[in-house]
Amino acid sequence: MRYLELTIGAILVYNFVLARFLGICPFLGVSKRLGTALGMSGAVVFVMTIASFITSLVYRHLLRFNIGGHVIDLSFLQVLLFILIIAGLVQLIEIMLQKLSIKLYQALGIYLPLITTNCAVLGAATINADNDYTVLEATVFGLCSGIGFALALVLFSSLRERLDLAEVPRPLKGTPIALITAGILAMVFVGFSGLC
C-alpha cells in the first residue's frame, strides 16, 4: 500500500513538472518534437532512479553518523554533496553506456550530460532526504518521479506538435502559447489531488 501511494503520488498527484514545478527548463526546451522528448524522458527516468538510490544511501549512512556516542550531523552539506554525486554518476553512466550499449548511448545522446544540471534530479534526491524515505522507498520514488516527468513531457510535446499546425494568433505564436498550454495542463493535473 505504501508503495502504491508513492507511485501514484509521484506520477500523478505531485507530478514533478506540473505540480512541483521542477525541471521546467527541459520541459519547455526539448518538447518541440515527440522524438527528442522521448529521448530526454528515457534519460531522466534512468538517471533519476539511480541517483535516488545512491543519494539516499549516502544520506542515510554518510551524512549523519556516530563517533563514540557523539552524533555528527553534516546534513547542511546535503545539496552540495548531492550535486557532486549526481554529476559524477551521470559521467560514470555515460562512460559505461558508450561501451556496453552503444544503441542506448546514441538514443539518449546529448540529453544524458544535460541532466547533470537538471533540478528535477536534485529535487528528487532532496525530497527523498526531507521525507526520510528508506533506500527502497527512495528508489521507487525516483523511478516514479522520472515516469511522471516523462508523462508530462510526452503529453506536452504531443500537444506542441499539434500547436505547430494550428492557427494561433500571431502575438501568441511559439513560446507564449506553449506556456499557456503548460498552465492548462498543470490545472488538469490538479484534478488528481486528493487521490492520495
Binding site: 549516502v58 547542511f76 552539506l77 554533496l81 557532486l84 559524477g88 559521467q91 560514470l92 562512460i95
Partner: peptide, 19 residues
C-alpha cells in the same frame, strides 16, 4: 565536512578514472 567532501570527490574521481 572537509573530509567528507574531499573524500567523495576523491572517490568519484578515482572511480571515474578507473571506469
Amino acid at each position: 565536512a572537509i573530509l567528507l567532501m574531499a573524500g567523495t570527490g576523491l572517490v568519484l574521481g578515482v572511480v571515474i578514472g578507473i571506469f
